[in-house]
Amino acid sequence: MSSQRTPRPTMTMVYDGQCPMCRRFVRLQRLRRDVGELELVDARQESAARRELSERGIDLDEGFALRIGEQWVHGGEALHRLALMSTGSGLFNRTMARLFASPRRTARLYPWLCRGRSILLRLLGRGPIDNLRRR
């Protein structure tokens, strides 16, 4: 009998580290243990994940990105996937799990969250991430 365990899936979340709503979401999000470790990457800092997303044409000003294994999901789809992986512990996680468990509901609500984020960043005097800018 082998004692070797199967490695957990690797997940990476690329989010706006200058957005107070995004930082709070990341801090409060609790995922089930069986989904593995979640690496957090600030989209405003240079990183391999940011470069890969830019090469794929994924605009981080339109939403955060989540890599599950080798697959990237973006925006509402990423939020929906996180809701399905949530522990449901605590008011925030229960609310997020219920609110975004439906892909259709998430697709309807996510654009409003993005608009709210854009308004907040403008009020705070923070510019876009602009990860698709040509150098």
Rank of each mutant, 00 (worst) to 15 (best):
L66T: 07
L84W: 12
Y110I: 06
C114M: 13
G63T: 11
R133Q: 15
R108M: 07
A83F: 09
R135W: 01
R104C: 09
V14P: 15
P7S: 12
V26H: 04
L82Q: 13
D59A: 08
F92L: 12
L60Q: 05
V73F: 03
R23L: 08
R5Y: 07
R30M: 14
V35M: 07
R67M: 02
S2Y: 05
S86Q: 14
L120F: 05
G116P: 09
M85A: 15
L66R: 02
R126G: 03
R51F: 03
Q29W: 10
A65Q: 00
M1L: 05
G90R: 11
P20T: 12
D16A: 10
S86H: 11
P103K: 09
A43E: 03
E39C: 06
A107G: 07
R5T: 13
M21F: 15
L40D: 03
L38G: 05
S54Y: 03
M11C: 12
S89C: 06
L31E: 09
L120Y: 04
L113Q: 05
R94V: 02
R98E: 10
G76L: 06
R104A: 13
F64K: 03
V14G: 09
M96N: 06
N93W: 04
L109T: 06
D59S: 05
A83I: 13
F25R: 04
L53W: 03
R115V: 12
R27G: 12
G127Q: 10
R122P: 00
L40Q: 12
T12M: 00
P7G: 07
V41H: 00
A48C: 10
Q71I: 02
L31A: 08
E70N: 11
I119W: 14
T6V: 15
A49F: 08
L113Y: 10
I129C: 06
G75L: 10
R94T: 13
R105K: 13
F100G: 10
M85L: 15
V73G: 12
R117A: 07
L109S: 04
L79A: 15
E46T: 13
L109I: 11
Y110W: 08
R56K: 15
A48W: 03
I119H: 04
R56C: 01
N93G: 08
L40C: 09
G63K: 06
H80Q: 11
A78L: 02
E77Y: 05
R122C: 08
R67E: 01
F64R: 01
G90K: 12
G125E: 04
S89G: 11
R23S: 14
V41M: 00
L66C: 12
M96C: 11
R104E: 11
L121S: 04
H80N: 14
G75A: 13
N93Y: 05
D61P: 01
G76D: 07
L79T: 13
R135H: 14
S86K: 07
T10P: 02
Q71L: 00
M21T: 12
M13W: 04
H74Q: 03
R133G: 07
E77Q: 15
M1K: 05
R108V: 09
R33Y: 03
V14H: 04
H74P: 06
A65Y: 04
E39G: 02
L31V: 14
Q71D: 07
F92I: 02
E77C: 08
M13C: 14
A43M: 10
V35C: 08
P103W: 08
L40S: 02
D16M: 13
R67C: 00
